[in-house]
Simulated assay, not measured.
Amino acid sequence: MGEHLSGSPPAGAGQQIYVEIGIRTSMERLWTLSQEPDLHPRWDLRFSRIVPTGQDDEGNVSFRYEFRLPFHTIRGTGTSLGNRRRADGQATSVLRFTTADVLSPIGPGAGYWRYIPTDHGVRFITGYSYRPGMGVLGRILDRRVIRPALGWATAISFDRLRLWAESGLRPEDSRNRWAIDAAARGAALLTALLLFRRALSGRDVGVAAILASTAALASWLTPPHRTVPRAGRCLRKAPDARSARAPSSLLTLPSPPISGTGPGRRSSSGIDF
């Protein structure tokens, strides 16, 4: 079997989400922070909880996952397989996931992680796709709203992981710093709007316009502190075809059972790369 799968996801799966970041850390530390079920949800915005439920003779790990919303918790199941000791020095992880929750915008899907050692650390890569959930509404919103939001959430999560691995900054602290930064920029933008309104009303036109422009530019152009996570630090398009292909182990990875349907029924994600 070849190293990678070729081809595109089948009809209905949508465009692959790709995110890559360079992390100055050891392979061992990055593997631990990203693979341990108790550590993974701390930095990854896409998961609130991951609970392993078993492992078969082939090493495939079954798990349950949760994503908590203000008034609802989306629950699903998954199957994953990690390969920590490849001959070329890379490490890989593949997974399939599904949910029976009709409110989930993400239906059955599949993805991969690739860990590539470099002179300065590790290239950490993910690619994944899925069939939209929520019926017709989900299909309408997926390309313009849900998929871009997931790409952003994945990218900012990767930068939170980078900060944790490189400097020991806890994901909870980097999240709080991002919130403070976003609030400060929002306050500056609101101030600019109020000053523009004052200028349009004819009161202190010159001063108000200058101050409004300054506040608006500050909210837009001031670079965030290096400890504030940013999605923009990640690569969002694969630099080559090799990086965008899933490891061949995804081809034989079994689909997970749909939560609540019993062990005999499995999802039909059918999504490969």
Score class of each variant (00 low, 15 high):
F196H: 11
G12S: 02
E3S: 15
E28Q: 12
L189R: 06
W113P: 04
F158K: 05
L30E: 04
G12K: 03
W164N: 10
V51H: 06
E166W: 01
G78P: 01
L250H: 01
A212P: 03
V228T: 07
L150R: 10
A149Q: 10
A244I: 07
W164L: 06
T154L: 09
M27V: 09
P41L: 02
G109V: 11
A246F: 08
P41G: 08
A216P: 03
D101T: 08
R226T: 12
R64E: 15
P254H: 03
P105K: 02
G7H: 04
G12F: 01
T77E: 08
L81T: 08
A149Y: 07
P148E: 02
L39R: 03
P10W: 04
R49D: 10
L81N: 03
G82E: 13
V136E: 14
A215G: 00
T118C: 04
T191H: 09
A155C: 03
L251T: 13
F158Y: 10
D204W: 09
D204G: 13
G133I: 07
F97N: 05
A184K: 10
S243L: 11
G168S: 06
A215S: 00
G260H: 02
T32N: 15
D88T: 05
M27L: 13
Q35K: 14
D56T: 11
G82W: 11
G78C: 05
S174A: 12
A13W: 07
A212K: 01
E28P: 04
G12C: 08
P108W: 00
P247R: 06
L194V: 11
